[in-house]
């Protein structure tokens, strides 16, 4: 199929883009790499009346200070996926990037585009929720920050208002003694995930002092598991009771079955992926000491 008609506008800077998006309201959509939006348009699942091309905007930097990594919304998956600082501070994010689509898609798809698209099986929303990232959003009214956990409302639905543009995402840099991992299962590499689980662990000596777990495939948005994260605190890196952690996560979730996998299968998968993610994060933690 082919897209419905729309008008095309090439924004010259951020002010221009938010002015155009404000003018078009619900009918306006920004386009960056187009790797998610254009398939939806080709299938006529999306029919925006106006596309605002934001590829010329200055949102292409990866900046670090002592506390925060800020990735411009237009940074392509391939680019931040190659940045050695990501692997050092955010190993689960680096793992997640490798599960995004294919090389050609990673070369053109942007971090802001994937987050704004909010596919329920997508890796980046999960990674943003895992690491307590903040979305930096601009509109004619100014700038605001939205915590990742509040940003994703439902499948393909975010709290972005018409006229707002995601310009960057900020990840708080975890303490040095931390490790993480992200595990995913899909039918084939590059396919939509059936389920995925990310783990982030902070530790002192050999003891876990803080944990975060995130899961895709259980609900319409990626979910955290505060009770199970609390269960991990105080466990040791060489015996994190990962099987029990997985069992508890599987018991907590209530996934829907679909044409690929039944609800029972997904629940079992989430348990197993949790075990693997926790064990892999612990192994990396031990390796890094």
């Amino acid at each position: 199929m082919r897209p419905a008609s729309f008008e095309y506008h090439k924004a010259v800077d951020i002010e221009d883009a938010v002015r155009l998006l404000a003018e078009f309201g619900e009918e306006g959509r920004p386009i960056a790499g187009g790797q998610s939006l254009v398939p939806m348009m080709n299938l006529r699942l999306a029919r925006p009346g106006h596309l605002v091309d934001i590829n010329a905007l200055p949102m292409t930097d990866i900046e670090f200070d002592d506390r925060t990594m800020r990735i411009g919304a237009l940074v392509r998956h391939e680019e931040y996926g190659r940045d050695p600082r990501i692997g050092k501070h955010f190993p689960a994010l680096l793992d997640a990037v490798h599960w995004i689509g294919h090389p050609t898609i990673r070369r053109h798809g942007s971090i802001g585009g994937s987050l704004s698209h909010a596919d329920p099986t997508a890796e980046l929303p999960a990674a943003a929720i895992l690491y307590d990232a903040s979305m930096v959003v601009r509109s004619l009214g100014g700038e605001r920050r939205i915590a990742a956990v509040d940003f994703f409302e439902s499948a393909y639905v975010t709290t972005l208002e018409p006229g707002e543009l995601l310009v960057a995402v900020e990840f708080p840099i975890p303490p040095r003694s931390s490790a993480g991992s992200f595990m995913e299962i899909g039918e084939r590499v590059g396919d939509f995930a059936i389920a995925s689980v990310g783990a982030h662990l902070e530790f002192e000596q050999a003891t876990i002092t803080r944990a975060a777990l995130v899961c895709c495939g259980a609900d319409l948005v990626a979910i955290r598991a505060p009770e199970i994260e609390a269960f991990l605190v105080g466990k040791t890196l060489d015996a994190p009771q990962a099987v029990e952690v997985g069992r508890r996560f599987a018991a907590m979730v209530d996934p829907s079955g679909d044409h690929i996998a039944s609800a029972d299968y997904k629940r079992a998968l989430i348990g197993e992926l949790t075990r693997r993610a926790v064990e892999a994060a612990c192994a990396r933690a031990i390796e890094s000491k």
Partner: peptide, 18 residues
């Protein structure tokens, strides 16, 4: 797949106006 400025891209996910 075609090359745009030397880089492979899916021409079905690209509008000619871009």
């Amino acid at each position: 797949t075609v090359h745009i400025d030397g880089v492979p891209k899916l021409s079905c996910l690209t509008f000619a106006v871009q």
